[in-house]
Amino acid sequence: MSAIQASVPATPVARRGRLTFLGGRVLEYLAVLIVALTLNFLLPRALPGGPLKLFGSPEALARLTAEERAQIATEYGFGDPIHLQFLDYLHSVVTLDLGTSLSDGRDVTAAIGDALPWTLLLVGTSIVATTLIGITLGVIGGIRRREGKGAFTLTGAIVVDSIPQFWLAMLLIVWFGVKWQIAPTFGATGPDGTTVAGLAQHLVLPVATLTITGIGYIFMYTRSSMLSVLTSEPVQHAHARGIPRGRLVRRHVLRPALLPVHTLIMLDIGFLAAGAIVVETVFAYPGLGRLTFGAIAARDYPLMQGTFLVLTLMVVLMNLLADLTYPLLDPRARTGGDR
């Protein structure tokens, strides 16, 4: 699915102290994070119904008397000036005290803590599969661009990239779950609890869905990156210097071609947690995506705030990680005393 937001690979920054550079990036992301936190803080206050809806369904709220409302407002500080409320909010974020869910009264932090590992398992497995398959095909497609197969694979990638995730999930359920009964279609564990086999079985269909729909994009990205590196001057010159083709591809093409792909995949990981909403919903997988969707559907504001926080945090962290790891792969992004 095209829910991936690829950012342009960070342009190498030359002639700047490495620490200053990294420090600058961290500060930039911190700023973005603070803005995102602010949005998150304002969210329940901005949506219809006002902040009191943090404490119950509309029906319950309607039954409250004016005194009771006032009491809740004082108790939770809604009467306080907005900046004090914001500080309180920041404090609660830092201390991971995210309140309790309105729908089932659970501690939000605990609910997220339960869901997060499942999402990480699901997303992690599918990212590994997508990356391996997508990059392999992309590299081959880039090398064999002139042959008919190259164009065929490209069209194939476009088709695969166009299938809606939820529809593919349905088809997989129909065939593998219902008709042939090969794989379970529901939940993350079998009736016998957490066994490795059970976990793996329950991963098959959701991971297949995420992988198949994710391959096309990585394939096309890798392929076009390969093409531009293959026609770049350093590679043309290496060819002229008599470096044989196999060695040329291995040593001179692959690494520069995969540099932007690395950034893409890092960002992808950040977004997949949010992108897994559909898959987790269809397969009733108990991860963060399903938790988020459930929270929105039930208008469970504390839970919503909590899950949004984690989702945004993941994106920002992966962005930061992409920036921090890039210099390890590209010497041009490294500066300072390595001469």
């Binding site: 001057e233 350093p234 043309q236 010159h237 290496a238 002229a240 210097r241 008599g242 470096i243 044989p244 040593r251 001179h252 690494r255 520069p256 590209d330 010497p331 041009r332």
Partner: peptide, 24 residues
């Protein structure tokens, strides 16, 4: 051309300044 370019004929390609491998 195996064993010819680079070994019997050395080539300094056009625009050689931007033709070195940037990552090695």
């Amino acid at each position: 051309w195996r064993g010819i370019r680079g070994r019997r004929i050395g080539i300094v390609p056009q625009g050689a300044m931007s033709g070195l491998s940037p990552i090695h």
